[in-house]
Amino acid sequence: MIIAKEITKRYGKMLALDTVSFTINAGESIALWGANGAGKTTAIRCLLGIHGFEGTLTVSGINVRKHGKAARALIGYVPQELSFFEMSVAETLVFYARLKKVDTQTIDSALKTVDLFDHRTKSVNALSGGMKQRLALAIALLADPPILLLDEPTASLDTAAQRDFIRMIRNLNAEGKTIVFSSHHFEEVAALANGVLLLNDGKLVNTFTPQDLAAELGLRQWLRVMVGTEDKSEACRVLENEGYHFVPNGKAIYVNIGARQKMDVLRLFSDVQISVTDFDVTDSHAVPENGGLS
């Protein structure tokens, strides 16, 4: 669906992207991972064809450099910095719907989808960061494009809004949309991506699964293991003997693990005949304080 071959982008003497090549298949959810200045936003803007660049970039077979407008018709874009023109929410959607050749009668349903219908008469500048993000998503989805490009989609959102937004994007990916997003938050990558392109100083350094990335970054997770009440004290003793950091909490035991260590714990319990009734993994790095994981 998206094929990039040796994309190079310079700003004067500064090399922002250096011969970056990758392929993204339809239905995938790919994260562009890297620190500030790694070239994530530049890569996204090249995908949109709003930057001149060297190399070849095709979106569904359309050459982005030659036919940027046609390529952009296949892409819904949610920027990092949300800057709208001074209009009401409904006027904003009508404006972009007309540019995307979408029937303006559909904007009410678009507003309802992102839960902004009650705010349609408000000025866009009166919206909170989360609402603006949802408005940008509504605009991106107006023409039902097969690809969504998201630039640091949850950077300015609070935790609850982040969770809602990620859920929405997950559902869209499940419906078959190809998702490409930039991030430097592992939680976001773990929740959304099934592939990671690691950028550093404008170069594509490696490609990972989110699990590999976690291992690469040395990130740790909490494994929630449910065991029978009669086995709980024995399970804690085994974990202590093996040197695991763990927190018993209600019916569960939270075990602090590195990436790709889930099975080690489950095998350990299996070896000492402790039956695990359920388990789950959270990407949160904080010590769980209650028994439930969101």
Binding site: K69, R72, Y77, S83
Partner: peptide
């Protein structure tokens, strides 16, 4: 300067 132009140019317009 506000970024509104970049967002507009990201739409199917030239």
């Amino acid at each position: 300067e506000t970024g509104a132009l970049a967002y507009l140019l990201a739409q199917p317009v030239n």
